[in-house]
C-alpha cells in the first residue's frame, strides 16, 4: 500500500515509517505540520494515511482538521487518526460523513504491530477501526442503555467488537467462536435493535453508530 505518515514527533514518525516498511508498505510522503499533511493527502492520494491529531503550527487539532478537510475534497480517502487520547467527540466527527475508511486509535496501538497493520489495512479497504476506549464510551451512553439492555452480555461484547470495525471472521477469532455462531448472534442482535443486517463490516459499524447517535437525547 502507498501510505502517507503525518506525525510531528520525529522519533514516532520514524518508528511508524520503519514499522510500515517492515510490513512491505511504501511510505510515499511524510508530513510534520497541518498544512503539509493536507498537501500530502491531496497531492499523493495515498491508499491510506496515518495522521496525528495534534500538530504544529498551532499545536491544537491541526492534523484532524487537515484529515477532515482532505476527506471533504476526496470522499472516503482512508485516514487512520492516531492520538495520545481518544474523544467520542472526534470519533463522531470522523464518522459523520458516513463514507467509511476511517480509523481512530490511541498511539499505544502501534505497540501491537500485527493488530495495528491489520487495522490500517481494514481502513484502507474502506472499513473502520475504532479504539476500544471510544467504543466503550459510545456504548456507555445512558440514552442507549435501555435499548442495549435487551441484548445479552455476549451480544453486547459482539456489538462492541463490531463497533471497533471487526468483521464477523475477526470477531469469531477474538471470541473463540465459529463464524457461523457470530452471524447467528448478529442476526438476532440486529433484530432486537431494529437495524438492517448487512454483511459489509463498514456499513454495519455505521449502522450501529447511527443507531447510537439516533437514540441520543
Amino acid at each position: 500500500m502507498r501510505v502517507v505518515v503525518a506525525e510531528d514527533l520525529y522519533l514516532l514518525r520514524d518508528g511508524i515509517v520503519r514499522l510500515l516498511e517492515a510490513y512491505d508498505h511504501e511510505v510515499v510522503a511524510t508530513a510534520a505540520t497541518g498544512p503539509e499533511t493536507f498537501e500530502a493527502l491531496i497531492g499523493h492520494r495515498p491508499d491510506v494515511a496515518v495522521v496525528d491529531v495534534r500538530m504544529p503550527p498551532t499545536n491544537t487539532d491541526e492534523g484532524l482538521t487537515a484529515a477532515l478537510r482532505a476527506r471533504e475534497q476526496i470522499a472516503g480517502l482512508p485516514v487512520l487518526v492516531l492520538s495520545q487520547h481518544v474523544e467520542q467527540l472526534y470519533a463522531r466527527e470522523l464518522l459523520a460523513d458516513q463514507a467509511g475508511g476511517v480509523g481512530y486509535l490511541l498511539k499505544d496501538s502501534v505497540f501491537d504491530a500485527d493488530q495495528f497493520i491489520e487495522a490500517l489495512e481494514r481502513v484502507a479497504g474502506g472499513g473502520t477501526a475504532l479504539d476500544p476506549a471510544v467504543v466503550t464510551r459510545l456504548l456507555g451512553r445512558p440514552a442507549t442503555a435501555s435499548r442495549l439492555a435487551r441484548l445479552t452480555g455476549r451480544e453486547r461484547s459482539i456489538l462492541a467488537l463490531m463497533a471497533e470495525g471487526l468483521s464477523n471472521a475477526a470477531i469469531a477469532g477474538r471470541l473463540f467462536l465459529s463464524e457461523g455462531t457470530i452471524s447467528k448472534y448478529t442476526t438476532t442482535m440486529f433484530d432486537k435493535l431494529g437495524l438492517r443486517d448487512d454483511d459489509n463490516a463498514n456499513r454495519r459499524v455505521l449502522a450501529v453508530l447511527a443507531y447510537l447517535d439516533d437514540t441520543r437525547g
Binding site: 491529531v53 495534534r54 499545536n59 491544537t60 474523544e87 467527540l89
Partner: peptide, 10 residues
Amino acid sequence: PVLVERGVVE
C-alpha cells in the same frame, strides 16, 4: 487535551 485542542465549548 480537548481543552487545548478545541477550547472550552467543545
